[in-house]
Structures are given as C-alpha cells and as structure tokens.
C-alpha cells in the first residue's frame, strides 16, 4: 500500500514536470515576449535590447527554464511583466480567495449532492426523482454566466438580499468577502451538485439492485441500515472521481463566474494577465492550476484505493 502511494506520487510529480515544460514551450512559441508586451510600440532597437537584458530574456531557453522552475519550487515565480510586482505576492491572495470560494461551495455542495443523489435513487421514478433529476439537467445545461446573471437579477436587484458583485479588494481579510461572495458560491454549488448528484444517483440505483442488497434484505437487515451500510459505501466509489474532478475545477479558478461577479480570485487574475499580455503571470497561474489538478486527482485515487478493498488487493497483486 505504502509503495503504491509512493509510486503514484512519483507519477504525479513527473506529470507536473511535463506540464511545466509544455507551458514554458507554449509561451516561448508565442510571437513576442514580456518585453514586447510592456514596451508595446517602443519595442524596437535599443530599448528592446535593454529591456531583454534587464529581464534576462536573451539567455538560452534552457537556462531561463531552469531559473523559472527553480524559483517556482520555492514559491517564487519571478516578477510580473507590466507592474514589476512579485508574482508570488500577486498570486498569493488570489489563490486564497479562490480557495475561499471553493471551500464555500464544497462544504455545502458535497453533502447536499450525496443526500439528493441517494434520495433520488431510493425514490426512483417517483416525483422526487423526476424533480431532482430535471433540476440537475437544468443546472448543467444553463451556461453559468446566464445562471449568474439571473441570480443577480433576482436576489440582488429585485429582492436586494445580497450585493450583486464583489467590490472588496483582493488582499482583504477573508470575512470581509462574506455577504458579497454568496451569489458566486451559489452558482458554483448548483453546477457541482448537479454533476455529483447524477453520478451518485446512478451508482446508488445499481447498488440497490445488486445481489448483495437483496441478500441483506433477506438476512433481515432493516432498510436504512442496508442503505447506509451495504449500498452507500459501494455507490460512493465511482462517485469519488467525479467529485475530484469537480473539486479540481473549483480550486483551479472558475474563470467565468469570477469575472461575472468581479471576484478577485485566480480565474480573474488569469483573464487580466492574458488581456495585459503578462506572460510570466499566465505561466505561473497555469502551473498552479495544473499542479492542483494533479494533486486532487492523486488524492482521489488514493482515497478510492483506501475505500475499495477489491481495487486495493488487485493493485497489490499486480505489483
């Protein structure tokens, strides 16, 4: 088991390494560089040369990659192109804000999704199931900017219960975001619940139709005990990976929602950096998002190994 985790971890690190190379090469391949972006029309002749020298852009690509990745390992992504700010300072608060938003959505969303999915499965083909399933389809099909705009219209403009958008600066205390970020969190929760709920519902239906649930019934096990002890643990296994994908998507910065609500998270920073052609910042954010995806999926893999005895001993045998 331990060796298995170590191996998965090593594979994850290799993946992140490959991603860093791809990101670096991708940015390299773009026409222009940080200097042309900053100097804009003045990016000719001596000014350009000088700028490149100060930013270290005329050294070989390999050296620059080494310096970049070395810094990134220490949490130092260098300086941003236009503002001459430290990227780590710039990104730090944004990461925290995105985490804050994700935590809000996840802490409500995951338990809600599990409950709704289980309930829909147990009341399959009744009005409960139809209501929940239709709701999920709706939440998944309406684009998030439409849903966000509608929510703003209803709750912020018509009812006036919550502020429409976030005006708090990025480096404010977490609690200061409080009433403002609710609508953004609600939009994310809706989407997330829809995905996870559908997965839980279908695997729960399979589990309830299985031979072992029939056997448990004929062993005289009470209904709710069957649901929680025999069916649910088995039904959750396939759901874990869907949950992981959703979590990664949330942590990686949800660009559209952050932009609509003007929320100072990683996603909006990415949009700003792209429109300002701030390539070092783009590089840094992409790297963070990639690492988050790898990390969360790794965690989900290990979690499902830990929860699924069949998978666990199979893996052991293969090894």
């Amino acid at each position: 088991m331990f060796a298995l985790i170590v191996r998965r971890l090593a594979l994850g690190l290799i993946t992140i390494g490959l991603v860093s190379v791809i990101i670096f090469l991708g940015v390299e391949a773009l026409p222009g560089d940080a200097c042309t972006a900053v100097l804009e029309r003045d990016a000719v002749g001596e000014a350009l040369e000088k700028c490149r020298e100060t930013m270290g852009l005329n050294t070989p690509a390999l050296t620059r990659y080494g310096a970049w990745i070395g810094g990134a390992l220490h949490g130092d992504f260098g300086l941003s192109a236009n503002g001459q700010e430290r990227i780590s300072d710039l990104v730090g608060f944004r990461v925290r804000n995105s985490l804050l938003l994700a935590a809000g959505a996840l802490s409500v969303g995951i338990p809600l999704a599990l409950c709704l999915g289980t309930l829909a499965a147990l009341r399959r083909d009744t009005w409960v199931d139809i209501l929940f399933s239709t709701g999920a389809i709706l939440a998944m099909t309406i684009p998030e900017f439409v849903a966000a705009t509608l929510l703003i219209l209803i709750f912020a403009i018509w009812l006036g219960w919550v502020p429409a958008i976030v005006l708090t600066p990025a480096d404010a205390q977490p609690l200061e975001f409080f009433p403002e970020f609710i609508l953004a969190a609600v939009v994310l929760t809706m989407l997330m619940v829809a995905h996870i709920m559908r997965m839980v519902r279908s695997s729960m239906i399979d589990a309830m139709a299985s031979d072992y649930v029939q056997m448990a019934t004929l062993k005289g096990v009470p209904y709710w005990r069957i649901v929680f002890r025999h069916a649910l643990p088995n039904a959750l296994l396939p759901a874990i990976n869907v949950i992981a994908l959703t979590v990664a998507w949330l942590l990686g910065g949800v660009v559209v929602v952050e932009v609509v609500f003007n929320y100072p998270g990683l996603g909006r920073l990415l949009v700003d950096a792209i429109s300002g052609r701030d390539l070092p910042v783009v590089q840094a954010i992409t790297m963070i998002v990639a690492a988050t995806y790898v990390g969360v999926n790794l965690f989900a893999d290990i979690l499902s190994l830990a929860l699924n005895p069949r998978l666990r001993s199979h893996q052991m045998r293969v090894r």
Binding site: S210, D211, M215, H230, P233, N234, P309
Partner: peptide, 10 residues
C-alpha cells in the same frame, strides 16, 4: 451466487 451476494466493502 455467494460471490455477488456478499457486500464487497464489508
């Protein structure tokens, strides 16, 4: 089929 009638996670 006892193989399928025993709960796999217990």
């Amino acid at each position: 089929n006892s193989g399928q009638s025993l709960t796999p996670t217990l």
